[in-house]
């Protein structure tokens, strides 16, 4: 049956081509894959492995294999759980407020006014500020003896806001919000500019008040950007380090001991690399889950323009 043979030959040829295409594809992603393997997967594997050891007080000395029990004991320890709780609090303090403020500033700067460019520059200026600089600025502002903010807040004298267990985390959060506001502002400004003016004109004619226009038109259309800011924000809050290192070093009384700082202290102050590895792996897992959940569930409720 010549027909069938022909088809088979063709089929074989097609499958060979598909194979070749697949091979080319894999070849093209290989550099990225190799980079990930070397800098992400391998270190991750090592960290998981390291978490099975009780490391010595000094890194030149032998470690003891303790097995998965170290994971159990670290994860159930009050220090770890406390730091996780502080991290969640930190995210709750910084993210909604930061995003709301970013949107508010972007709305303000979106007006067509003379000299609005100056405000845009001012609002986005914190992007050019490093965490260290922002932290040092606020450290000075919050100083109980010479700080302007302390003076205005009526907290002059005493040990200061940053040494006050009640206010330390909120204070660090404010610094983080301030530092990130430029980025959020730019993000939201770009998103606002992408919303066609005619939509808002249409809504005005349709009788919507300015709040109604914002809520029913602007905000839904900003939602992809807001979603992006939330993902970046959550990951960012889980990795906030510089401001805490400079402002409070995890204190007072561990009130700013977020997970990443706990890991840092365990590893580089207490030389407890095994414990730090466990906490890092858990942090990784948490962020992975958070990101997956966000993409799985939140994304569905987000409008993406076509």
């Amino acid at each position: 049956m010549p027909d069938r043979r022909r088809r088979t030959v063709l089929g074989r040829r097609a499958s060979r081509r598909a194979l070749r295409e697949a091979a080319t594809g894999y070849l093209l992603v290989l550099p990225a894959l190799a980079t990930f393997a070397v800098f992400v997967f391998y270190p991750l594997g090592r960290a998981i492995w390291l978490g099975l050891y009780r490391t010595s007080v000094s890194p030149n000395l032998p470690s003891t294999y303790v097995g998965p029990s170290q994971y159990a004991s670290v994860v159930s320890s009050s220090a770890f759980l406390g730091s996780l709780w502080r991290t969640i609090l930190f995210a709750v303090f910084t993210m909604p407020a930061g995003i709301a403020l970013g949107i508010a500033l972007a709305m303000l700067a979106h007006q067509r006014l003379r000299g609005i460019q100056v405000f845009r520059t001012v609002f986005s200026s914190t992007v050019a500020t490093s965490t260290a600089v922002a932290s040092v600025i606020f450290f000075t502002l919050l100083d109980p003896q010479i700080g302007l903010l302390s003076y205005w807040l009526g907290k002059k004298g005493g040990a200061g806001i940053l040494s006050d267990p009640t206010f330390a985390l909120p204070a660090v959060s404010v610094v983080s919000i301030w530092q990130n506001i430029g980025f959020t502002f730019i993000l939201m400004s770009a998103a606002l500019q992408a919303i066609p003016d005619t939509l808002l004109d249409a809504a005005r004619l349709d009788g919507a008040s300015s709040w109604h226009r914002f809520r029913s038109v602007t905000l839904p259309l900003l939602s992809p950007t807001v979603f992006f800011a939330i993902v970046v924000g959550i990951i960012g809050s889980f990795q906030a380090f510089g401001q805490i290192d400079i402002l409070t070093q995890g204190g007072p009384n561990n009130h700013t001991m977020v997970l990443i700082y706990y890991i840092y202290q365990s590893a580089f102050v207490n030389n407890d690399y095994g414990l730090a590895a466990v906490a890092s792996v858990v942090l990784f897992a948490i962020l992975l889950v958070v990101t997956l959940v966000q993409f799985r569930f939140v994304e569905r409720r987000v409008f993406y323009a076509t």
Binding site: T198, D201, A202, L205, D206, V217, L221, S223, F303, A305
Partner: peptide, 14 residues
């Protein structure tokens, strides 16, 4: 109390 139809239609995409 006037309504407008836009060239781009200005439908709310969401």
């Amino acid at each position: 109390d006037v309504a407008m139809v836009f060239q781009s239609y200005a439908l709310y995409p969401h």
